[in-house]
């Protein structure tokens, strides 16, 4: 089932090879990987979003479709905020789009992981729709042990459980909205960003860690300077700091 493409070396797969025997096993492996912390965190964060949808007087169907369709919490929240404000169409679309701009560098990092697999590469435009910070990190963590052919089914399984958890979370939040006290709502909203902070802080790659630290420092001042453009600018600055600081440190040791 694995194939060599060009002169690329296959990643070494050790004793765990039989665990990845076929696509279905890989899909289940992805389901299980996602079923622990990631799916729980998606569900909890989307409970907060469900409550927001309810308070805006929108339908449950809107909550579920916006979650699975936009599949990026900042953009979803921005959409509802703009609808509440009755903002002009163009400004609303630019706002929603910018809130999810992280998907550009993320898809540039995700899509190439499927190169070297015929079926995986063919489905790349579908894979990026499943992509959230959770599923992106979930796949990146397993990349060293999965061959390109194994990544598609694993990623599909991981994404499936996260999307089920997301749809379930929105529905739960929507239905419980009126019963939720303020401290629960704000804690659920706080949970999502703070979870990602720890996901990134646990990374092994030094360049990524340095970029993470630089971004944390650059974020707030850049926002004060230019709210609309703070994210792409802070990303480019912090990413460059991390990338080049890592190269510099590697050159010295």
């Amino acid at each position: 089932m694995r194939q060599h493409v060009g002169d690329k070396e296959e990643p070494a797969i050790s004793a765990s090879e039989n665990l990845y025997a076929n696509n279905w096993a890989l899909f289940r492996r992805g389901l299980l990987d996602g079923f622990s912390l990631p799916a729980f965190m998606v569900a909890a964060s989307m409970i907060g979003y469900g409550a927001l949808v309810h308070s805006a007087g929108l339908s449950l169907a809107f909550g579920v479709v916006s979650t699975l369709g936009i599949w990026g919490l900042p953009g979803q929240v921005a959409l509802i905020e703009y609808m509440l404000l009755g903002a002009p169409l163009v400004s609303m679309l630019i706002g929603v789009s910018l809130a999810n701009m992280r998907f550009l560098p993320m898809s540039m990092s995700l899509a190439p992981l499927f190169r070297g697999s015929k079926s995986g590469w063919r489905l790349r435009y579908l894979w990026v729709q499943f992509m959230s910070v959770n599923t992106w990190v979930g796949l990146l963590r397993r990349v060293p042990e999965l061959s390109p052919d194994q990544r598609g089914p694993f990623y599909a399984g991981f994404s499936t459980i996260c999307m089920i958890a997301g749809a379930g979370g929105v529905s739960a939040g929507y239905l419980m909205a009126e019963a939720m006290p303020f401290y629960v709502t704000v804690t659920l909203v706080f949970l999502n960003p703070i979870y990602f902070a720890f996901v990134f802080a646990a990374m092994r790659a030094r360049a990524g860690l340095l970029a993470f630290a630089a971004g944390a420092i650059a974020g707030p001042p850049m926002y004060i300077l230019t709210p609309e453009w703070s994210l792409p600018l802070a990303g480019i600055i912090a990413g460059s700091v991390g990338y080049f600081a890592d190269r510099f440190l590697r050159g010295r040791s």
Partner: peptide
């Protein structure tokens, strides 16, 4: 692409930090 991945990390981290502060 390694640089692009760093940009993604930096952007997400800036977003998290902005939400906290």
């Amino acid at each position: 692409l390694q640089w692009v991945a760093c940009v993604a990390y930096g952007l997400l981290s800036a977003l998290i930090s902005r939400i906290v502060f």
